[in-house]
């Protein structure tokens, strides 16, 4: 029992980490809630679905093309919409509402093309079950966990050891100062948008592969991503790990005791408590309320 619970927690947390890391990556630089981040998350699995359905493409090729599509979508959104607003020094609420509009358009276009119903990424395929220390996991779930670990590692290494990582961290920390010392912040925004979108697409594919997909899943996932990033600490992406674990544990245990209906409420209650009492999350430096 304990082993199964642990396995469930790990899978749930891994899903949250996947979404959280991709969202957090973009959020640190954008500094507004980019609802449009859910667009590549939704787009990628639907592209895989379409490619498999239309041309019976092997899954690795379909996934590759889907990730490319996700990256392109994220980049286009940034360059066409957000860059225009950035140039006008638009308030974060304006960017938020614009990204929301873009997401609503996209979600409903997907619904118009593919229908509003729930779909499955590989209809009819048998799901491999794997026994692990007394717990049963499907192969899809293992991929989610593995994927989360890999993504976390790749992102942390990139941010710590590459030139892009240095530029990224500068712009995330102090965009005005970064520009003064000659850094091309627009290029950082572009690369972050692309990288974040690809990661979001990957998260979408892996999670849809494990569960299912429907056009409205983007917003649900994004909301959890926001919870994980805020609770974990916006400043430090590794904070997604303890945050995801805490949330997943609380949700799984409560579902085991009562039922899973309070999943969302639990996560968002935690978010509220953290935002009001510890806005810097697990890690991160104390934030000051407006002062002088």
């Amino acid at each position: 029992m304990a082993a199964q619970l642990t396995a469930n927690i790990a899978v749930l947390a891994a899903g949250y980490i996947l979404i959280g890391v991709s969202f957090g990556l973009v959020y640190r630089v954008y500094r507004f809630l980019n609802v449009g981040h859910a667009i590549p998350y939704v787009a990628a699995p639907y592209v895989v679905f379409a490619l498999q359905g239309l041309w019976d493409m092997p899954v690795w090729l379909a996934a590759g093309m889907a990730l490319l599509a996700a990256g392109v979508l994220g980049t286009l959104l940034d360059q066409i919409l957000f860059r225009t607003l950035r140039r006008r020094q638009a308030a974060s609420s304006v960017l938020l509402m614009a990204s929301l509009g873009a997401y609503i358009v996209f979600e409903n276009l997907v619904a118009l093309i593919f229908g509003n119903d729930v779909q499955s990424l590989r209809p009819g395929a048998t799901v491999q079950s794997i026994g692990w220390f007394g717990a049963v996991l499907t192969s899809a779930q293992l991929v989610v966990v593995g994927g989360a670990a890999l993504v976390m590692l790749v992102v942390l290494v990139t941010l710590r050891f590459t030139l892009f990582g240095v530029c990224y961290r500068s712009v995330a920390c102090n965009p005005a100062l970064a520009r003064t010392i000659g850094m091309n912040s627009e290029r950082v925004y572009l690369k972050t948008a692309a990288f974040g979108a690809v990661l979001a697409g990957l998260a979408g594919i892996l999670i849809s592969n494990d569960t299912h997909m429907e056009p409205t899943m983007g917003l649900q996932a994004l909301l959890m991503g926001i919870v994980v990033v805020i609770v974990g600490g916006r400043e430090e992406l590794a904070g997604c790990i303890p945050a995801a674990l805490v949330i997943a544990t609380t949700q799984t245990l409560s579902a085991w005791q009562s039922s899973g209906q309070w999943h969302a409420a639990i996560a968002f209650l935690m978010l509220l408590v953290f935002l009001v009492f510890r806005p810097q999350g697990f890690f991160g430096h104390p934030l000051k309320k407006a002062g002088i």
Partner: peptide, 8 residues
């Protein structure tokens, strides 16, 4: 879709 476009 129409409503989202309006927002943007």
């Amino acid at each position: 879709v129409f409503y989202g476009i309006l927002l943007v």
